[in-house]
């Protein structure tokens, strides 16, 4: 934590505000109307839920927003989507091959992310890119099941998994 945070809003209040804004946005998207009464009801319900959950789940207090963080989040999203499409096509090559030739295995991947939400995003991204599936996450080590390790160096595979995703996530969530 930087020294600037001493003057920042209290942990729980910050979590409340972000959770509230997120829930209101989701309410508006789900109900898809901007009628006054609907927005009012959504704001009230979201405020009640945010007040209830923000204190209990400390994950929401760790979120900070600044233009730089938003930019890095967009970078992460782009890298993730490219990876998703690329890896899905690679998966289709295996699935439509006349004979499935794979050599599954397990590698350990090290992460330097500390914040819970960043670690969750990293694990979910690795799980969503086919060819790798997170089996467990403990401390700074992830157990990842790999679809095909033929002729590949496992430590190289492990490094390639977090490449392009971990750095923006670290800058976004810390």
């Amino acid at each position: 934590m930087s020294s600037r945070d001493v003057n920042a809003t209290p942990f729980a209040l910050r979590g409340f505000v972000w959770l509230w804004l997120l829930l209101v946005a989701i309410w508006l998207a789900v109900s898809s109307t901007f009628a006054v009464e609907s927005v009012l009801a959504g704001a009230l319900i979201s405020a009640a839920l945010a007040a209830f959950f923000a204190r209990r789940f400390d994950i929401w207090g760790g979120i900070r927003v600044s233009p730089g963080r938003v930019y890095h989040f967009l970078l992460y999203t782009g890298a993730f989507l490219r990876e998703l499409v690329h890896a899905n096509i690679a998966m289709m090559r295996y699935v439509y091959a006349p004979r499935i030739q794979i050599e599954p295995g397990i590698v350990t991947v090290k992460t330097r992310l500390k914040s819970p939400i960043g670690r969750l995003a990293l694990a979910n991204s690795i799980s969503l890119t086919p060819g790798s599936l997170v089996l467990d996450l403990e401390g700074d080590e992830m157990l990842v099941h790999c679809l095909d390790l033929r002729g590949a160096d496992p430590s190289e595979v492990a490094r390639g998994m977090t490449r392009g995703i971990e750095a923006p996530l670290e800058k976004t969530f810390g």
């Binding site: 799980s127 086919p130 099941h145």
Partner: peptide
Amino acid sequence: MPDAFTRIQAGTKATTL
């Protein structure tokens, strides 16, 4: 796919995209 892990890999993620 030949075993449970590879089935999870193939089945639950191509569905996301």
